[in-house]
């Protein structure tokens, strides 16, 4: 699961940095922006078959790869 999410994140953000540093601040560093978030949700739905309503997304909760993984694992 964790690996799959990291794969998706690397693909959306276009950087392998995420795998090396899963505590990187995605929004602060510019690796992810609001439209990247949209692409991320679409990819999660397509590849993990999980529909996360965009209205539940909060930047704080999704700030780092670790936080995203935690959020998704809790929802499964």
């Amino acid at each position: 699961m964790r690996e799959k999410i990291l794969d998706i994140l690397c693909q959306v953000c276009g950087s392998e940095e995420i795998r090396e540093n899963p505590d990187v601040e995605l929004y602060e560093t510019g690796l992810l922006d609001s439209f990247g978030t949209v692409q991320l949700l679409v990819a999660i739905e397509e590849e993990l078959h999980m529909a996360i309503p965009i209205s539940e997304i909060d930047r704080e909760m999704w700030a780092t790869p670790h936080k995203i993984i935690k959020f998704i694992e809790e929802r499964r």
Binding site: Y27, D33, S34, F35, T37, I54, S55, E56, I57, D58, R59
Partner: peptide, 25 residues
């Protein structure tokens, strides 16, 4: 709001919008 969709929808739900002007994105 654009950065935090949760915030956006919190406000949008209360908006008496009639004409929507935005980018397709």
């Amino acid at each position: 709001m654009t950065l935090n969709p949760r915030e956006l929808f919190y406000w949008l739900k209360q908006a008496p919008l009639e004409v929507w002007v935005s980018t397709p994105s």
